[in-house]
Nucleic acid binder design. Structure first.
Length: 481
RNA sequence: GGCGGCGUAGCUCAGCUGGUUAGAGCACAGGACUCAUAAGCCUGGGGUCACAAGUUCAAGUCUUGUCGCCGCUACCA
């Protein structure tokens, strides 16, 4: 079986933040789980680099847009590495391949593209047009970017999105395109029922130069959003490459809730226009706040992913954002809750279970475990959760096992058995503990890959191979700076 | 304005098609133990399930209304 999973590609106008990191991690879990099942897997991510906003920012910094993109794109690559997220592909929308293939898409869509005049209020910050009403409500100034909307009248190419409205709606309602969670599915279907307008998919070059040329029209470049969406197929080598033929449609596309419209309306429209199948699942995650507030420089509550990873490690980061941010909703980060989760769950419950087991094997069995029975606990709950992208619940179910193991140890009391010289019994109990830990490691692999690897290397061969450090060392809690 | 969701222990939440004394984790209190990262285990306190009315033998679970949050979308053009 082939498996294809994508993240949205971050726009390179800002630093990588917790939301990006979480999305990368979620997709990585799906990819690792798929590889674990034996599926041939492509996990792709990348960066979105065109558009007026980038050009503008580059100018501010006295860089070329390409130089700015290079620099920012690299930061996202670095973040992936720090997170121990391993995509198979990293596409940049400035890659020649993407540019050329996007033009092929354009040509293939020709029957659904027409030229028209567009009049509207435009915000360079959002790269989007806004309705008259909204503009009035905001007194002519975009609240997100604190700059006035510009009245724009221009010639654009339009994509006949309206023509696909019904089919998109039908696909989503029938779960041919499965939008997860259901609340998001409801939102998008109600939007689709209201009807989609055709969308503008180009910008005049004299206004925005930093983009992909529209084939056959020197005066227009592709609208950045239109072209960015195409990355999901250009990265596979649309139209001719074998990967494209083998891996499209994507099994899961992971996105944040702010861009549903693009991925559940416009993107399916483009795919239908191309005569391609729709992505099978669109998984929509929520937003992450910090200390219950939207992260912002002015509030001074910014926390960078690297900051957390440097102190606690990639697995702790992954753990928190997978389990303690609800998979189907918004979540919050605070050092306090993060550290509580780290200490109680990772260090005390899991780390210590590994530690005490290893210590007892060392102490009572001279480090030799012998035959390890196969643990055959029911993993149905876990599988189901994972299939539904409920990472939080999947980890809940793993932690039930971790707790169960600690309870088992306290029930059997191997140290007492050892004192009574019941050697066989000691060996049996400890082998069961090891067996449990190995299964826990297996379940944990997609989520906490290096933790899983450490547990495996410690126990797998039936002989304890000591680790250099404990799994999750505890730190003195720091007072707030 | 329209559509949708939410309001359950101090905190975060679970409670499927209505049915015994409403659950979990965290936090808090107490206890027994010692293999272990002073970790783990056991026990306990704590809830008029937002409010009101209704349907029903029976409602946290269904209906209606009220209040309070939130999301999507809109009046335009």
């Amino acid at each position: 079986m082939n498996y294809y999973v994508t993240t949205s590609i971050p726009y390179v106008n800002g630093e990588p933040h917790l939301g990006h990191a979480m999305e990368f991690v979620m997709a990585d879990v799906l990819a690792r789980a798929a590889r674990g099942r034996g599926d041939t897997t492509i996990f792709s991510t990348g960066t979105d680099e065109h558009g007026g906003k980038i050009a503008e920012k580059a100018a501010e910094l006295k860089l070329t847009p390409q130089a700015l993109s290079d620099k920012m794109s690299q930061k996202f690559r670095t973040l992936l590495k720090e997170l121990n997220v391993e995509p198979d592909r990293f596409i940049r929308t400035t890659d020649h391949g993407h540019e050329q293939r996007s033009q092929l898409v354009w040509k293939a869509l020709a029957k659904d593209i027409y030229k028209n005049k567009y009049v509207g209020w435009y915000c360079t910050g959002d790269e989007e047009f806004f309705t008259e009403t909204l503009v009035k409500e905001n007194h002519g100034v975009c609240p997100d970017h604190n700059r006035p909307y510009e009245k724009v009248e221009e010639e654009n190419y339009f994509f006949r999105l309206s023509a696909y409205n019904e089919r998109i709606l039908q696909a989503i309602e029938s779960d041919e395109l499965h939008v997860v969670p259901e609340t998001k599915k409801n939102e998008i279907t109600s939007l689709l029922r209201e009807g989609l307008d055709d969308i503008s998919i180009s910008r005049p070059r004299n206004k925005i130069d930093w983009g992909i040329a529209v084939p056959g029209d020197k005066n227009q470049v592709m609208y950045v959003w239109f072209e960015a969406l195409l990355n999901y197929i250009t990265v596979l080598g649309y139209p001719e490459h074998e990967d494209f033929k083998q891996f499209w449609p994507a099994n899961v596309q992971v996105i944040g809730k702010g861009i549903i419209r693009f991925h559940a309306a416009i993107w399916p429209g483009i795919l239908l226009g191309l005569g391609l199948p729709l992505q099978k699942t669109l998984y929509v995650h929520g937003y992450v706040t910090v200390d219950s507030k939207k992260m912002s420089k002015s509030l001074g509550n910014t926390v960078s992913p690297s900051e957390i990873i440097k102190k606690y490690g990639a697995d702790a980061f992954r753990y928190y954002f997978l389990r303690h941010v609800p998979s189907y909703g918004d979540g919050d980060f605070s050092w306090e809750t993060f550290e509580a989760a780290y200490n109680n769950e990772l260090a005390n419950e899991l780390g210590n279970a590994v530690q005490r087991t290893a210590a007892m094997v060392q102490k009572y069995l001279g480090g030799i475990i012998g035959d390890i029975p196969l643990a055959e606990h029911d993993t149905g709950e876990y599988e189901e959760a994972l299939a539904a992208c409920r990472f939080d619940r999947a980890l809940d179910s793993v932690w039930d096992r971790v707790r169960g193991l600690n309870q088992y140890i306290d029930l059997e009391k191997p140290w007492e058995l050892a004192k009574k010289n019941e050697d066989d019994h000691v060996r049996e109990v400890l082998a069961n503990q090891v067996s449990d830990l190995l299964q826990i490691a297996m379940l944990l692999e997609p989520f906490l890959p290096s933790t899983a690897a450490k547990i495996n290397s410690l126990f797998k061969d039936g002989i304890i191979r000591p680790l250099e450090t404990t799994l999750f060392p505890k730190f003195d809690t720091e007072p707030d700076a």
